[in-house]
Design a protein around this nucleic acid. Structure first.
Length: 280
DNA sequence: ATGGTTGTTACACAA
């Protein structure tokens, strides 16, 4: 039996969540299928699909064994989707994007309320007054925080995706330098801390690999050799509520990792997938 | 302590 939701004899069920900023799902449908073959996620959350709903390569995901799809696309830019081995049920949608971009899609899978997010990158200048994109980014995170603060921390809920912020000093290649660069400014780090505190979220990838170990999920295309450059950021996250803590730590420690080998594939996305296991 | 690359699009822009 291939690895999947039902892990078998002991009656436990494993739900493997994965998130990947795919940077054009049409260009990388085959890579997505390969990732599913190799890592067997039960749910794959995609960001930057860069297509309309009707242009999504449905067949590739059906054949890969993730036939249940919830797609929120738009022409050309942004766009998010959830692909699942298990049936998708409705979940309360979040109203986060004042620009009405396709940046959030929500679903309930195996009893877990899942919010797949693509937070705005925020432009160049870390100044809310001078740079509307930076203001939009912080507004998006503030709306999300306000929404989460109304929820029950004991409810099984996860927020995953490209949050476009590296929250910790070991989530960037150089903390001092990056503190002046959008993605790791004090304002963004504070916004992420407010979000974390809203429901006492657990950052599963960091739980699995504690500080001071460096962790990156994104490397610029502008480096010839991303490994040699060493200039990465951890922008992609899987956060769960305390209601999922037992499931996340069932094996002793959190089982979450960054699949940086995918960043080394031919014609890669600039982001690597991130996965985390929940055991019920 | 900063040069350049990629994807979608339409003849730039966003990342």
């Amino acid at each position: 039996m291939r690895p999947g939701f039902f892990s078998g004899m002991d009656g436990t069920m494993r739900l493997r969540l994965a998130t990947w900023n795919v940077n054009s799902v049409r260009l990388r449908a085959e890579q997505a299928a390969r990732f599913v073959r190799e890592q067997a996620p039960d749910v794959l959350c995609l960001q930057e699909i860069k297509c309309r709903d009707g242009e999504f390569p449905v067949q590739a995901f059906v054949e890969a064994g993730l036939p249940h799809l919830k797609i929120s696309g738009q022409k050309g830019w942004h766009g998010v989707a959830i692909a699942s081995r298990l049936p998708i049920e409705e979940a309360p949608p979040l109203d986060l994007c004042r620009e009405r971009h396709a940046r959030a899609v929500s679903a309930r899978v195996a009893g877990v309320e899942l919010h797949n997010l693509y937070v705005p990158a925020g432009g160049d200048a870390p100044d809310r007054a001078a740079n509307p994109k930076f203001d939009h980014k912080l507004d998006f995170l503030e709306r999300l925080t306000a929404e989460m603060a109304r929820r029950d921390p004991l409810a099984p809920l996860a927020i995953v995706g490209d949050l476009n912020v590296a929250p910790g000093e070991h989530d960037v290649w150089n903390h001092r330098f990056m503190s002046k660069v959008v993605s790791h400014t004090p304002q963004e780090v504070a916004a992420m801390e407010a979000l974390r505190a809203s429901l006492k979220f657990l950052d599963l990838t960091r739980e699995a690999t504690p500080d001071p170990q460096k962790l990156f999920s994104w490397w610029s295309y502008r480096a010839l050799d991303f490994r040699k450059s060493g200039r990465g950021l951890r922008l992609d996250h899987i956060w769960v509520t305390p209601g999922l803590k037992d499931a996340a730590f069932r094996l002793g420690s959190a089982a979450s990792r960054i699949h940086d080998d995918v960043r080394a594939w031919e014609r890669p996305s600039d982001h690597a997938p991130v996965s985390a296991d929940l055991v019920f």
